[in-house]
Amino acid sequence: MPIRTNRGRAAVYRRLWGYPLRSPRHLVGTLVFLAIVITALGIALPKVMGKQATATPSAPGSTSAVTTTSPPPGLAAPVPTTATLPTRLSSPLLTPTSAPPNPEAINVAKQWATAWVNHPAGITNADWLNGMRTLTTDEFLPQMTTVDPANIPATRVTGDPTVKTSFSSSVEVLVPTDGPKLSITVVDTGAGWRVSDYDQAS
């Protein structure tokens, strides 16, 4: 017989809530039942939530779509091809191209060496550098401002320059002096050949 009045429902609810309090046996049985239900939920819920987590995308906001197109009737399905992008190492490295020595580069190296050994006593760096300014690249001039002319161990050029290496855009020239031999690098700047570096060779 269904319960049709609020009073009847309230009586049923009172019976249910009052059941555990009727006796200690009822109370213990209710607690055991609740413990079993809570344990079952604790085991089942993580499994259900884990399945839902694996079904969702790994990165939120990222979508992936796979589209497939069927070929027209009578035509074979296209064969998928993979395109490989060239890596940086796959490109061949450019190496300088050897070329005959440029006479202008050799002449610039000799003039620069002649100005380098010209440092009379008391000359300032600025005056000494003026003799090489038009023969030196703009990038190398700031390094030359740190040189003290009084420390240069040579006073004159003692022989003709010789070419050590020669490329289309740079030439390394050896110039003998009464001190160390100079190894001078001359580069083509587009506006003429200029000295970009030097070293005191043995």
Rank of each mutant, 00 (worst) to 15 (best):
T67E: 08
N107R: 12
V173F: 10
K181A: 05
H119I: 01
T137V: 03
N151Y: 03
T87I: 02
R22C: 01
R88N: 02
K164P: 02
K51G: 15
T67K: 10
L129S: 13
L182M: 14
I3L: 12
V32P: 01
G18V: 13
W17N: 14
S62Q: 15
I152E: 02
P46Y: 10
P92H: 03
P103T: 15
V117P: 04
T5K: 04
P96Y: 02
G179N: 04
A76N: 07
A115H: 11
T87A: 07
M49D: 07
L41C: 10
D197P: 00
L89P: 00
R9T: 12
K110I: 00
T165E: 10
P153L: 07
V32K: 08
S169T: 12
T67L: 14
G61Y: 08
I106L: 02
V48Q: 06
T67Q: 12
V66Y: 12
T177A: 01
A65N: 13
P96W: 06
G50Q: 13
N102V: 13
V163Q: 06
Y19R: 07
M132H: 14
W128K: 08
G74F: 12
G159C: 05
N151V: 05
P161Q: 07
V32N: 05
A65H: 14
A105P: 07
P46K: 09
R15A: 15
V48F: 01
G190P: 00
P101S: 13
P86K: 10
A109D: 10
V117D: 03
T56R: 14
L21V: 05
G61R: 09
P72G: 05
T146L: 14
M1V: 10
T97P: 06
A40E: 08
G29F: 02
S90W: 01
V157D: 01
P142Y: 09
E104P: 02
R7L: 09
T87R: 05
A77D: 02
S70A: 14
D148L: 09
M1T: 12
T158H: 03
W193T: 02
N125T: 15
S90E: 08
Q111M: 06
P73G: 05
L45D: 02
A83L: 13
V117Y: 03
V175T: 10
G192D: 06
N118T: 07
L89A: 09
D188S: 02
G122Y: 10
W17R: 15
A35N: 04
R4H: 02
T146A: 15
D178G: 00
M49P: 01
S70W: 08
T69Q: 15
I123E: 11
S183G: 06
L174M: 13
P2S: 10
D197Q: 12
S62D: 14
N102G: 12
R25W: 00
L89Y: 03
P180Q: 05
D127H: 05
Y198V: 00
Q111P: 03
T165P: 03
W128Y: 05
L182Y: 07
Q143R: 07
P57L: 13
